[in-house]
Simulated assay, not measured.
Amino acid sequence: MILSLWVDKALEATAMDAVDALRAFFLLSAITTITISIPTSLHSRFLVYGPRATSTPAQSKGLLDYLATWQVPHSYFTHFYIASLLSSVFWAAQIACKGAAFRAIATRVSEEHQRSSMSLTQVVICCALLFLQGSRRLWECISFSKPSSSRMWFVHWALGLGFYLAAGVAIWIEGSRALLLNDFSIAHFQMTNAPSLRTFALVPLFLVASGLQHDSHHYLSSLKKYTLPEHPMFRGVVCPHYGAECIIYLSLALVAAPRGEWINKTMLACFVFVAVNLGLTARNTKQWYAQKFGNDSVRDWWFMVPYVY
């Protein structure tokens, strides 16, 4: 089959199986983002976006200036969550019927990575949570969006799409052994048994973090203009909604831990990318607040999570 050949060629080129390729994508993306953030000449052109961005020179003076003009509207952030939602629906259908796309990837997981596997119930729970996250964020983007002339670098948009499409696979890839060997039944969707202690603790954490992020987005969208946030969640924290998103992905990595493991390493790599990307953006936001409202206004504020970062 053509799809299987494409997957084989891609993995053969990287000398990795599907699990290692996903982990490498997340980690290399995080490393690349950090690398770009270090030189001021790259950071100011490619990482800063939205209201924090400085205007691009009208006449490009060099290659970096030219590349910086490859921009898309900031409203394209909505595409990330459309991709996330469609990815969740697509892979749910593929997994349920053991479709060609699912088999093309699941059969390319090495024996080493199949020794410990997520259970079918874990796959159902984690895929449902990721679907919930994508649905909520898409609804927020549509409901809370305001007309804006802000723009972002084209590569940032493309990397974001790649991340959400990869996350749609990462959420179930470490359960590929159980998915290949077993068929779904209604029992896997009936939560009649008492949940494990891990699920009992972490699913509520995911939901609480989701609620806090939603409240933060709702508050920010209610501001008539860019002002220093005064909501209790922003008291001493520049971007609590970023911290909430990190907690969301960390809880997914813990809920999705295969049997015998304390964490799902593929989703952990996904979390690392989220933490790095949002952590750098939170730093940019704090610098912007300091320039706009005075350094003393945010001097002792945490970036995302109080007493952590």
Rank of each mutant, 00 (worst) to 15 (best):
S41T: 03
F26D: 00
I36Q: 00
R23E: 11
F46K: 05
T32R: 04
A68R: 02
L27S: 05
A53D: 07
I36Y: 00
L27P: 07
Q59I: 10
L63Q: 04
L64T: 09
S41Q: 11
S37M: 00
P57D: 09
R52C: 05
F25R: 14
H43T: 14
H43M: 14
D65Q: 08
T69G: 12
V72A: 13
T69N: 06
I34K: 06
T33I: 12
S29C: 08
L42V: 07
L47Y: 04
I36P: 02
A58E: 13
L28M: 09
T40E: 14
T32V: 14
T32S: 05
F25H: 03
G50E: 03
R45V: 12
A24Q: 11
T40H: 15
L67P: 11
S44H: 12
L63I: 15
A58F: 04
S41Y: 04
L67H: 12
A58W: 00
F46Y: 11
P39Y: 08
T35E: 02
V48Y: 06
A24G: 03
A68H: 09
R45T: 09
A24W: 09
F25T: 07
P39I: 04
F26N: 03
H43F: 15
L27N: 02
P57K: 10
K61D: 13
T40G: 07
L42G: 08
Q71W: 03
I34M: 11
T69C: 10
K61S: 15
F25I: 06
R45Y: 12
Y66R: 10
S60N: 03
V72M: 08
L47E: 08
T33C: 13
R45C: 11
L47T: 06
S60V: 14
P73D: 07
T56I: 12
T35N: 00
T33S: 08
K61L: 05
L27E: 05
S44Y: 05
T33A: 12
I36F: 04
I31P: 00
T54V: 00
A53W: 04
L63E: 03
G62R: 01
S60L: 05
P51Y: 08
L67N: 07
G50N: 06
L63R: 09
Q59V: 12
Y66G: 03
T69P: 02
W70R: 14
W70F: 14
S55N: 12
T69R: 15
S29R: 03
V48W: 06
A68E: 09
P73Y: 13
T32D: 03
L28T: 14
T32Q: 05
S29Q: 10
V72D: 14
S60Q: 07
Y49C: 04
L22G: 11
A53K: 13
Q71H: 03
S44Q: 10
V72L: 13
S55E: 10
L22P: 08
G62F: 05
A30I: 01
S60C: 01
T40A: 15
P51H: 10
L27G: 00
G62Y: 07
R23H: 06
G62D: 11
S55H: 13
I31H: 03
L63D: 02
A53S: 11
F25K: 12
W70L: 12
V48P: 01
S55W: 00
K61G: 10
R52I: 00
S37L: 01
D65S: 07
S60R: 04
W70C: 15
S44K: 12
L27Y: 06
T56L: 14
V48A: 09
T54N: 11
